[in-house]
């Protein structure tokens, strides 16, 4: 019973931490727009905690570059499990328009494993909500829960 409650909590309360990893701000402001009245992702129990130690889901926007790849890795390691990573925007997925620039490593998956890719340039708030929902579905199957 207690285990069930914990699993239910995991689905119902995905706290996110958002890391801007060299994005153009387009996706960042859309992530922030998700928190605001029109989209209000707190409906799903999502809070932007800003502290990787409290977070369950890591939202990464933007391309990874030579300097921030260490930071990204560090943040990912600080998060206690179980955790999920969502790459947002064309840059987060592959590097987007910048993938041939000299200081760009590429998409987020070059550094840490990514669970969900949210395409778009920038990704719409609706798409970001879809992304979080998809990540939760993935967590559900991992926990062996049937929808």
């Amino acid at each position: 019973m207690f285990g069930n409650m914990i699993n239910k909590g995991r689905i119902k309360s995905p706290w996110v931490v958002h890391f801007d990893c060299g994005s153009c701000n387009g996706c960042d402001i859309e992530v922030l727009a998700c928190l605001t009245p029109i989209y209000d992702i707190e409906r799903f129990g999502i809070i932007n905690v800003g502290n990787p130690k409290h977070a369950d889901v890591l939202l990464v926007t933007g391309t990874v570059n030579q300097r921030n790849k260490h930071v990204l890795k560090n943040i990912y390691d600080q998060m206690p499990g179980p955790k999920a990573v969502i790459a947002i925007g064309a840059c987060g997925c592959t590097g987007g328009v910048f993938r041939e620039a000299y200081n760009v490593v590429g998409g987020v998956d070059k550094v840490i494993p990514v669970d969900v890719y949210v395409p778009g340039c920038p990704a719409r708030p609706e798409a970001i909500i879809d992304g979080v929902v998809a990540a939760l579905e993935k967590v559900k199957t991992l926990l062996g829960m049937t929808a």
């Binding site: 914990i6 909590g9 119902k12 309360s13 129990g45 369950d56 206690p80």
Partner: peptide, 14 residues
């Protein structure tokens, strides 16, 4: 929601 949060936190890696 606060209950969900706490149950989830209890299930996290210490």
């Amino acid at each position: 929601q606060p209950l969900y949060d706490v149950f989830k936190l209890l299930g996290k890696e210490p």
